[in-house]
Amino acid sequence: MKALFSKKSLIVFGVYLLVAGLFPFFGSDYFLSVGIIMGLHAIVTIGLSLVMGYAGQISLGQAAFWGIGAYTTGILTTKWGMSPWFALLIAALIPAIAAFLMARAIAGLQGYYLAMATLAMGFIVQIVFGEWESVTGGMGGLVGIPALPLFDDLGVDFYYLVWGMVTLVLLFSLGIIHSRIGRAFRAIHKSEIAATSIGINVANYKLLAFVLSGLFAGISGGLYANYMGIIDPQPFGLHESIKFLTMVVVGGAASVWGALLGTILIGSIGEVMLILSEHFPMLKGDMDTIVYGAILVLCIIFMPEGLVPRLQKIMAKRQEEPLPAERKLGA
């Protein structure tokens, strides 16, 4: 039987485990919380990379699914008294269902029209969070969301829970990418006509990408609510959606490792900006917005494929041999 993973991917995965696993031993509590939030973001962006980098669709409203996950947990635990674990399970499912319904509704849209529809959907969801007071607590939001039993110290334990989840989502996505499903995603990205001609139902696979991204966002959102204990509509809007987008684009949408790396990179830049603004008050204000904007612009112009695919390309160039001669390598 063939090895489950190639040697190169085992090394990459080993480095990942080492870094993610050892991180809590090198930082303060503050850094731990930064690591937790990064992990939560990474779960969302890995899903988003399936939609954008693989299936070639766009979502300008990913924070909405994240929010639906968070609010599901929030509402079920505080208003219905449901156990946090069970609520988390439902928090994963509801956004997946929401993504299914949305993708069904807008399956026929392309390019700019799809961008508009996802943008609109994101706004609607955020407005509902703010306006449906009896259920969502309105602008004040929900308070007193319980932590997950077994992980209720919200420290190192919770960190490992989150990054364990990141790892699962990562492995699951890698499994999909290197399978007929992932190839179908990439095929519809390049040519819907060709994909159809080989038997791929384009609408269904777009739907599937959105549903998976909704599922991942829901898991992350549910955990976020458990972690924060309070939620309000503010973090689930366009600003956050664009931040997710930035992370995916910078790391490289057509790579789940790219999404992960982009998340860590953008998250770290945010932290650096925060520290800088404490020391140089004149940087206060929207310095981080300027930096994100500049990164997006520079990235699209100079490195549209993103960091990880660019690195892969450079490495491949280095080893690139001339085209193999006929029948020399013939398996």
């Binding site: 489950l4 699951f172 996505s173 999909i176 007929r180 190839r183 179908a184 599937l208």
Partner: peptide, 18 residues
């Protein structure tokens, strides 16, 4: 391999979980 799509049938979960 994409050409074999119509005659294969592994689903999301069997692929994702290998």
């Amino acid at each position: 391999m994409t050409g074999l799509h119509s005659c294969t049938k592994s689903g999301v979960f069997s692929c994702g979980l290998k």
